[in-house]
Simulated scan of single mutants.
Amino acid sequence: MRLKDKVAVITGAGSGIGRKTAILFAEHGAKVTAADVNLETAEETCSMIKEQGGQCIAVKTDVSNARDIQEMLNTTLNAFGKLDILYNNAGIPMIAQSIEDVTEELFDRIMDVNVKGVFLGCKYAVPIFKMQGTGGVIISTASSAVSRPRPGQNIYAASKGTIVTLTRALAAELAEHQIRVAAINPVAVDTPMFYGFIGDRDEQEARASFKSTIPLGRMAQPEDIAYAALYLASDEASLVTGAIMDVDGGRGV
């Protein structure tokens, strides 16, 4: 019960990393807000948690919309009375393409979700943490693309690089308030989002291509990332802030 009596908000909780993390956090005693742009999948995550005796509420949230973020946090406070952990996990992928083929619309969409979504989460969670006066934890999902970008993943890599820099800046800024800030750099994860990276490529060929660059020889599973988030969110990591945790099978070495 590493998160007993903690309250956690997890974005992108309707599938993949977010769903696995929500379930794992609940197993360790957290009360969870499962936020996702797809309310139905968020509700499915909550149903899984409740079947195991946990507490969860589902909230429809477009992380690029400030009102949605505020509503997500207000709903959490109304339901559970406090906020301890914000996991900015929601993100969107990018099919590899040369920079000259990237449209302004695609650029804006990636930055809106992957960067603005994290900014808004932090912007509106931090005042709550400060008001409570007991610290807090902010975790964000970045990517191994920050240090080892693949060809054609230009804007996606840039968006995740921004998260890493923002994480370090906020760690320095918020330390006096005992608010810890960290990020996780996953390698390619075996989730539905993976298909958003490969487009119309042959799936087996794409998997083989990704695996060939990972020294440990496999893609990440959602639980690999979830357990990293569990550690960062727990009191066991009480001296950890500004950390960027690579969960990449050695790809960044």
Rank of each mutant, 00 (worst) to 15 (best):
R2N: 12
L3D: 03
L3S: 01
K4H: 09
K4C: 04
D5C: 02
A8G: 07
T11G: 06
G14F: 07
G16S: 11
G16W: 06
G18M: 10
F25I: 03
A26K: 02
H28F: 14
G29P: 05
A30V: 01
K31T: 02
T33L: 09
A34R: 01
D36S: 07
T41Y: 05
A42Y: 03
E43G: 03
E44S: 12
E44P: 00
E44H: 13
K50Y: 05
K50N: 03
K50Q: 12
E51W: 02
Q52K: 15
G53R: 08
C56H: 00
C56D: 00
V59D: 02
T61R: 03
D62Y: 13
N65Q: 15
I69A: 01
M72Q: 12
N74F: 14
L77Q: 12
L77K: 14
L77G: 04
A79W: 00
A79Q: 11
A79D: 00
G81E: 10
K82L: 04
L86M: 14
Y87V: 13
N88T: 04
N89S: 09
N89I: 01
A90H: 05
G91R: 11
I92H: 05
P93F: 05
Q97H: 08
Q97D: 00
S98V: 07
I99W: 07
E100S: 13
D101A: 13
V102F: 07
T103S: 15
L106W: 10
F107A: 06
D108P: 04
M111S: 06
M111K: 01
M111R: 04
V118I: 11
V118M: 12
F119D: 06
C122R: 01
Y124A: 07
Y124N: 09
V126A: 11
F129G: 09
Q132M: 14
G133I: 13
T134A: 14
G136K: 10
I138V: 13
I138T: 04
I138S: 06
A145Y: 01
R148F: 07
R148K: 15
Q153D: 11
N154I: 13
A158T: 09
K160Y: 01
K160H: 05
G161C: 10
T162I: 13
I163W: 03
I163Q: 10
T167E: 06
A171R: 08
E173C: 12
Q178P: 02
V181G: 09
A182I: 05
V187H: 11
V189H: 01
P192N: 11
P192C: 09
Y195Q: 14
I198Y: 08
G199E: 09
R201C: 03
A208T: 10
F210Q: 11
L216H: 10
R218Q: 03
A228M: 04
A233Q: 02
S234M: 08
D235C: 04
D235W: 07
E236T: 09
A237L: 06
S238K: 14
A243S: 12
I244K: 08
I244F: 05
V247R: 12
V247Q: 10
R251W: 07
G252D: 14
G252E: 15
